[in-house]
Nucleic acid binder design. Structure first.
Lengths: 140, 140
DNA sequence: CACTATAACGCAACTCGGTTGCGTTTGTAA
DNA sequence: TTACAAACGCAACCGAGTTGCGTTATAGTG
């Protein structure tokens, strides 16, 4: 709830309104234990005090993503998932039950690789994505 | 062309036919300089001697993927891309023009990270995906 | 060459995540 | 209270990917 309030306040000082959908969506993401898809979010909102149109959810997600408060991830050929933006991290994806968990990885491990690629391939690296696929504790 | 022939022969010895669609699709993937989406493949096939139904393309891709001759990759929230399977590698994705290039990365860089994750997180790592996003030579 | 089994194919209809245009509602500041 | 624009809902749409089913074509056999 703290993060939701903080984001709403920051947005307000930039001239954006504290709307019902925006607040509900932020609370949903903050409460979630793992990244959510838009259909997930729609269902969770609908089981609350009121539901919102899917167009609204997509637009709000897009808005918060552009504003830097939400980050998007895509795993293999699955639907896009969203979570509150935080420090850079990666994900553990269970190929059996599908749950997604955050995991911290020492970036230094391949920062030298990025520099090598920039030199050798003439490619300017701006970002990377790294996900691990395997079996979570319950599914082994 | 060599790879296409080799795959068709191997499939034949396992009781699978050398059909027009299979051969055309393999040639398309072998000729391509970068991974292709199914719509890409459909277009390229259609500009050749004959076109094929999209269901056929999807089924053939699925078949070749299962047989281990084609590998699939998904970048962020884009459509699935396919390429002939080869030694494990990663990709450089230009965020400007969208081109995708293969790149070899020293796996040892984070194999220790995978072992650390297995121990600390109780997660059995089976596979990983790593893509670099940035600007290719022409787009810098 | 004819026959046969089945791998492979085409077609049409469908699913579902995601988008667009447009008119309406609502939050906020003056 | 008013007025402007941010935010919203609705309906129609788009495109990747799937499914069921009947048809065609490949390749082994007699």
């Amino acid at each position: 709830m703290e993060t939701t309030k903080r984001i709403l306040d920051e947005l307000k000082t930039n001239g954006f309104r504290r709307s019902a959908a925006r607040e509900a969506l932020l609370r949903t993401l903050e409460t979630a234990q793992s990244p959510l898809s838009v259909p997930d979010i729609e269902r969770r909102l609908a089981s609350g005090p009121r539901s919102f149109n899917k167009t609204t959810v997509y637009r709000e997600i897009e808005f918060l993503k552009t504003a830097g408060y939400v980050s998007e991830l895509t795993l293999r050929n699955d639907v896009a998932l969203y979570e509150l933006a935080g420090p850079h991290h990666h994900h553990l994806v269970c190929v059996d039950c599908g749950t997604v968990r955050d995991v911290a990885v020492k970036e230094e491990s391949w920062e030298c690789e990025e520099r090598r690629i920039e030199k050798k391939e003439g490619f300017r690296v701006l970002d990377h994505s790294l996900e691990f696929f395997g079996l979570c504790g319950s599914c082994q």
